[in-house]
Simulated assay, not measured.
Amino acid sequence: MNDTLQLEQLALPATPDSDDASDFRALVELNNTVCRNDAGTDDLAQTPAELLAGLRDTADAVQRIFIIREAGALVGAITVGHATAEPTSSQIDLMVLPENWGRGIEDALLARAEEETRILGRKVMQTWTLHPGHAEGPTITPATGWGVVADTALSRLLSNSGFTLEQVERNSAFDLQGSMNGVRTAFEASRVAAGSDYRLVEWTIPTPPELKEGYAWALSRMSTDVPAGALEIDEEIWDAARVERREARLIEGGQTMSVAAALHVPTGRLAAFNELVIDADRTAVTHQYCTLVLQEHRGHSLGMLVKCANLLRWRDVAPDSPRVSTFNAEENRRMLDINEQIGFTPVSYAGAWQKKLV
Results as ranks from 00 to 15, higher is better:
D3W: 05
Q6M: 06
L10Y: 03
L12W: 02
T15S: 15
D17F: 05
D19C: 07
D23N: 05
F24C: 06
A26C: 07
E29M: 05
T41A: 08
T41F: 04
D43T: 12
L44I: 14
D57P: 01
T58D: 11
V62P: 01
R64N: 15
G72Q: 08
L74W: 05
A77R: 05
I78H: 06
T79A: 13
V80W: 09
S89M: 02
S90T: 15
M95P: 00
L97P: 02
P98Y: 03
E99Q: 15
I105H: 04
A108Y: 01
A108F: 00
R112D: 06
I119N: 10
I119P: 01
R122Q: 07
R122W: 04
V124E: 11
H131D: 14
A135G: 12
E136L: 07
T141M: 04
T144D: 14
T144E: 12
G147W: 10
V148D: 08
A150D: 09
D151G: 05
D151M: 01
L154F: 09
S155F: 06
L157E: 03
G162Q: 13
T164K: 03
S172A: 15
S172C: 12
A173M: 06
F174I: 05
T185K: 10
F187Y: 13
D197P: 01
E202S: 12
W203A: 01
I205Q: 12
P206T: 11
P206I: 03
T207L: 08
E210Y: 00
K212P: 08
E213F: 05
S223M: 10
A230Y: 00
I233R: 07
E235P: 08
D239F: 03
D239I: 02
D239V: 02
E244A: 15
R245D: 02
G254C: 06
G254M: 07
Q255E: 11
A260E: 06
A261K: 01
A261C: 04
G268I: 10
L270Q: 06
D279C: 04
R282Q: 15
Q288W: 09
Q288M: 14
L294I: 07
M304F: 01
R315L: 12
A318L: 05
A318P: 07
S321Y: 03
R323V: 02
M335E: 08
L336Q: 09
L336T: 11
G343S: 07
V347W: 09
